[in-house]
Write a protein that binds this DNA or RNA. Structure first.
Lengths: 133, 133
DNA sequence: AGTCTAAATAGTAATCATTACTATTTATAA
DNA sequence: TTATAAATAGTAATGATTACTATTTAGACT
């Protein structure tokens, strides 16, 4: 009954396992570095290809915070993020996903809305206390 | 009393004027094409440099919808956007900016929040009617 | 009007994340 | 065991953006 022509690969398994083991929303390169400790000759292209496939399959999420490098997240229950403009870390927000916003927007607008992306920008607690001039 | 060492340039004036004359959230390249009709030998680097400076000065906004190319917007009262995943157009949303979200998030979290970015994703009315399979 | 100086530009090269390509390897079904 | 297409490694290409450098120019001060 399996119609998907998807085969197992230890590379993909490792990528997904490492991504699932962190909440740090890493970049492709961070994942590459960590996977390499286990599979030293893995190709960066393989990491990118698998991350793309996995996010297209809905197994992971691709995030864009606007700093030029994509982030990935295996925690795919929808949630918001906070990006510290100081240390460039991306953190999960505790606020629950507000799907009412989608229907609100859908009514206020003629479009079919699939989802929304909400990112808060600012300065995290750590960086605030470090900030001395 | 003027302490800014910023000089007039017809290039910057033209870039800002053309960006102000559209609500289409154009890319740097679109702006480049249009400015070239007026200043044929303007450099793409000049367009990028001015767009960067203008957005740092707060005169315009840089937007990132996650498709790899930045958009720019001279309408800088804060507002939300809708991105059509079909035609890749970026449109203004009618919903007002909800600054209560910022304070809500600030309390729920330890961080100092400057602003938030909210983008809705989906399929616009035009593309929905065109979609036949 | 003429001179000076730093800001801005044009044109080009470099960067950096990501994707594409190709020969080789490998999971898995027969 | 063999066959075959999926996945990979390694490398080249792409595309947006930034950096660099010699030249031009705004605008202040004679």
């Amino acid at each position: 009954m399996e119609t998907t022509s998807k085969r197992y690969s230890k590379q993909r398994e490792c990528i997904l396992r490492i991504l699932s083991g962190t909440t740090s929303h890493p970049t492709a390169n961070w994942i590459y570095d960590h996977v390499r400790e286990e599979i030293p000759n893995i190709s960066l292209g393989t990491v990118y290809r698998n991350l793309s496939n996995l996010s297209q399959d809905g197994a992971i999420m691709r995030l864009d915070v606007g700093d030029g490098t994509d982030r990935f997240d295996a925690n795919f229950h929808p949630h918001y993020h906070f990006y510290c403009q100081e240390c460039r870390n991306l953190l999960d927000m505790e606020l629950p996903y507000d799907s009412a916003l989608d229907s609100l927007a859908e009514h206020a607008y003629g479009a079919k809305i699939a989802w929304h992306n909400l990112i808060f920008y600012g300065c995290c607690a750590d960086c605030q206390s470090t900030e001395k001039e």
